[in-house]
Nucleic acid binder design. Sequence first.
RNA 1: UCCGGCGUAGCUCAAUGGUAGAGCGGGUGGCUGUUAACCACUAGGUCGUAGGUUCGAGCCCUACCGCCGGAGCCA
Length: 463
Amino acid sequence: MKRDLIKDVLAATGRDIPVTVAGWVRTRRDSKGGFSFIELNDGSSFGNIQVIADEKLPNYESEIARLFPGGSVVVKGTLVASQGSGQRVEVVADEVRVLGFCEPNDYPLQKQRVSFERLREIAHLRPRTNTFGAVLRVRNALAWATHRFFQERQFYYVHTPIITASDCEGAGEMFQVTTLDLDQLPMRDGAVDFAEDFFGKPAGLTVSGQLEGETYACALGNIYTFGPTFRAENSNTRRHLAEFWMIEPEMAFADLQDDADLAEDYLRYLFTYVLENCVEDLAFFNQRIEKTLLETLTRLATSTFKRITYTEAVDLLKKAPVTFEFPVGWGTDLQSEHERYLTEEVFKCPVTVINYPREIKAFYMRLNDDEKTVAAMDVLLPQVGEIIGGSQREDRHDLLMQRIVDNGLNPEDYWWYLDLRRFGGVPHAGFGLGFERIVQFCTGMHNIRDVIPFPRTPKNASF
RNA sequence: UCCGGCGUAGCUCAAUGGUAGAGCGGGUGGCUGUUAACCACUAGGUCGUAGGUUCGAGCCCUACCGCCGGAGCCA
């Protein structure tokens, strides 16, 4: 069907021109002047087009008067300057063809406030609301901006595997993937015989593409992944999903400072991009969801993020004139309340914390010269918390081997990962960014379940 | 998984242990270039589930289910 996007119609400068728009009715108001106002939305923009449907239209009584929120129509008409005050233009209909009626008694989205909790139960209809339409458009813009950012900098997009049978990812609980009959498991010596399974050994859904990403960075220079990630943690918070999307760049010939620079450049790029390309949607979020959103994004788009070492962070927290629920001490991980204090109270901006104690970080992070800390970094955002976790990777074969052993891991499981250090190893670094968390931050949406179309969380995989 | 809160009309929420209510949405009528429209009338309920206490439970107790917030784990 040839149609005009409502976004383009609303922005059109011409008048008295023929247009065809198609979409879903948001609301209908009747005038006793002998016509109805129909507000139509097709998802192309936040705003609706107002359609004037005269009672002289042949299907006015039989169909147009029966249009309620949710009904779908195609309207052929003329774009004119609006006589009313709420909108610049409107469409005077020559024809309103109803594609699908929508019974108001059954349709859950009426002209009323519906809670986000309720909308999660009707996730197939919630994209028709103002909020979720805006979320999707911002999410789309952030995805597009991500590819643009890395492509402009000559990073290659690498597709790392979703299913992985390597036992060595180590980040969080894995979902198991199997074709075995769970009611009749093949047993051998008292244990499940995975030789019978599809891959001949236990397999799971990826919890990170990093290790595979490193192999491509150590051949092609700079790469990034952008794909689904799965964590079978029983996490019930507003910042966790069991299935989420993660962006993981990896740079060869790079150290931790390069890594932190990239992370900050990337975040600023995203903020700038949505500010320039999602004006209407962000204005809505700023008005209805988070009053400081535009001010915050605008400030951060050009700001330098605070960068401090873990040791400095601990000193700051020890001197803090507030009492924390959890004690602060060098050698323990920073608690949420500590991170929030740093970003929201001390610096009031994103904070990159670097050089954590080796004991609390992953085995693959590069040991610093002090031999007490590793070249790790976390980027913390106000409200959202940890959005990026990254590091310079341990590129010295013997030290990596030692770290693997010290962590109680089996070096044989990491033979190919160790090979990268045997054959022309180079310093390299990268990070992982939780895509939904950046969507949360850029929309001000409070719950991560409302920034992904169909959230998967413990006890919930509907739709 | 732990701590706290919540579950009542299609939706958002009220209701000292004593006859279940309002607003929005729907229907009918009125009014209007309207725009969260407005005014009047009207229909609409197994109070999350299962037990228990009580003369009597939406309200008190127990268990379970689900949702929300915080924590942990992390992105």
